[in-house]
Every structure is written in C-alpha cells, then in structure tokens.
C-alpha cells in the first residue's frame, strides 16, 4: 500500500498522487472518527488552549490516533496560522513537514514555484502531476454533475452534496474507490423524484463541525443547494492545466474572489438566504463583515465550536432564519 501523507487543507492533490503517496485529509479523519470530541480532548490535554479552533485540535488528535501518519503537507500561506502552529507542535515531536503556500494575490509564478517545489520534495514532477490531473478529470466532472443535480434537478440533499464535495480534498484516500462510490450514488438516485419544493439556502464558509446541521435544516423545510467551500474543494475540471485549476480555486486567496463566486452561484441557483458558517476562534469570523455587506440576500452568521450536535440556541437561529425567509 502506498505511504500516507497528511494534508491540513486542500492542496494540489495531483502532485501527491503522482508521487505515489496516499493523501489523507486530517480534517476528514477527525470529523469521521467514531469519537471526534475525544480527539479534541487529546489536544487539550497536550496543552492546546480552550480558545483554539476545534478543527485544529481535532486534526492534532487525529494524527495522534493514527500514528501511520509521519509526513504532513502544511499550508503555510492561504490557510491559517493556527494550523501552522499545530503542525509545528507535531514537527517538534519528529513529524516531517512539507510546506506549501498559496499566494494571497494569486501570483502565477509564485504558485507555479510552490508546486514545483512540492513536486520536487515528494520526488515527482509537474508533468507527472499533470498526467494525474487528466486521470482525475472524469471524476471531477462527475462531482460537477452531482452538484448540478443538487440545485438544478433538486434530487440531491444538502448533506449528500456536502459529503461528496468535501471528500474530494483527498478522495477519501482512494480516487478509484471514491469514483465507484459516486457512480453507485448516481444509480441510487436515478429513480429519485425531485425533493420537496422548499426554501433554498446557501452554505458559505469552512465546513461545519456540527453533525446535524443539514438534517435539521431539512426538517425545518429548507435545503442547502450550494455548499461554497466544499464545491471549491472539488475544483473546476475545465481549467487550463494544474496551475489554472489551483488559481481558480477561491478559498486560499483574498475574500474578494470568494464573494464573486458566492454571488454568482447564489443568483444562478436561486438561493434565498445564505448561512455563513464560522468556526469559533477562527480568523474567518472577521470576514463575516465583508460577506454580510456584499451579498444581496439575507445572511445568517452561524458559529460552531465543538464537534457534535447543535445546541438549542444554534437551532433557534436556524429555525428563525428559515421562518423569516
């Protein structure tokens, strides 16, 4: 079996695959663990402060629980310094770290250099990664179709959309198997009648740490037809090469590009209101100001902290928002 390499967020996964490694998104192994809060506690017991984002603590706990991970690609620019500090605590204990940086201003040469550097460090080339990209295009196109079926044909729930798109950061550690899963899902929904007409919501921001968010939204008569960051993770396959693909990926760059993307999709998908999810103690909370100012539809800012089910107050917020719409 290929050696595994941890990733802290979406990076050019094609390079990792071309180098013969299996990418493991630490966020995914944290949140799909049988007991995510226990992983957060592992970090807290190690001395992580109470006021640190739970994604960061969960990733640390996940690495500790899965000792086969002894290499991590850490995004040093374009993600957050909390993750960086987390990776440093791991490095301090012998973890091998490969840094990767996204340029804030989308500087092409900078990104290209970073990709070259990562490819070199992992023992592969950009050409080989480009080959991997070609191999993955079909799967990425299927994910695009899945997304379209969510908002245009209305046959896919917000939770399903979230799951498949968010999983594309590491393709659940096995692109082939994941593609098969997507195919099976398509057969499963072939006969599915369009879901009940309900209020159409958008979900912006980092993926939620809350386990029952999508289900609750649907119980209350609404449905998420747009998952912003998750959709970004799935990438646009119709880009010009690897560089183009990771330049059109909005998340690691300035908020302006994200806002343009959100506005366009909100309009296209008939989104009536946007839930801006923010993680407690995350710097993205500050960007909420810009997002609220910029969008033309009502915005509910929803804060999540610990992994698990939502508390009564968070439910009230969502319920009231849907009721108002």
């Amino acid at each position: 079996m290929a050696e595994k390499i941890g990733i802290t967020t979406t990076i050019p996964v094609e390079i990792v695959l071309a180098a013969g490694f299996t990418p493991v998104d630490l966020n995914n192994i944290f949140i799909t663990d049988s007991d995510p809060p226990a992983l957060v506690r592992v970090a807290e017991q190690r001395g992580y402060p109470g006021n640190t984002c739970c994604w960061v603590k969960g990733m640390y706990g996940a690495v500790k629980k899965n000792p086969y991970i002894n290499k991590i690609i850490a995004v040093t620019q374009g993600d957050c310094t909390n993750t960086l500090a987390m990776v440093e605590t791991l490095q301090h204990n012998g973890m091998k770290i490969f840094p990767f940086a996204y340029p804030f201003d989308k500087d092409m040469t900078f990104l290209s250099d970073q990709m070259q550097k990562l490819a070199g460090a992992l023992g592969t080339t950009i050409e080989a990664a480009e080959g991997k990209r070609q191999e993955l295009i079909n799967l990425r196109k299927k994910l695009q179709t899945l997304d379209r079926l969510t908002w245009e044909e209305n046959v896919i729930t917000g939770q399903e959309n979230h799951y498949y798109l968010v999983s594309s950061s590491d393709f659940n550690q096995d692109p082939e198997k994941f593609e098969k899963e997507v195919d099976d899902f398509f057969s499963e929904i072939k006969e599915r009648a369009p879901l009940k007409k309900n209020i159409r919501l958008g979900f912006a921001g980092v993926p939620p740490v809350l386990s029952d968010l999508y289900r609750f939204i649907e119980e209350k008569g609404a449905r998420v037809v747009f998952n912003e960051v998750q959709r970004q993770f799935a990438m646009n396959p119709e880009c010009d090469g690897l560089l183009g693909q990771y330049l059109s990926y909005t998340y690691p760059y300035d908020i302006k590009g994200r806002i343009e993307d959100i506005k366009r999709e909100v309009k296209k998908r008939g989104v009536q209101g946007v839930i801006h999810y923010v993680q407690s103690f995350c710097h993205h909370q500050i960007e909420d100001i810009i997002l609220r100012d910029s969008l033309d539809v009502p915005v509910l800012t929803l804060e999540g902290d610990k992994p698990g089910a939502m508390d009564a107050r968070t439910r009230l917020r969502i319920e009231s928002f849907i009721e108002m719409l």
């Binding site: 969008l295 033309d296 539809v297 009502p298 009230l316 917020r317 108002m324």
Partner: peptide, 21 residues
C-alpha cells in the same frame, strides 16, 4: 437568558436578527 435585536426590514424586506446567547 439572552438578548436579541431584530431589524424588521432587513435585506429584501426580510427581518434580520442578532442574538447574544
């Protein structure tokens, strides 16, 4: 146990609210 501010005519005429809870 909490306080709220509700703006009756928010974006698109839909009420907007803030809660401190």
């Amino acid at each position: 146990q909490d306080c709220k501010v509700i703006k009756i005519n928010g974006k698109n005429g839909i009420p907007e609210f803030e809660m401190n809870d």
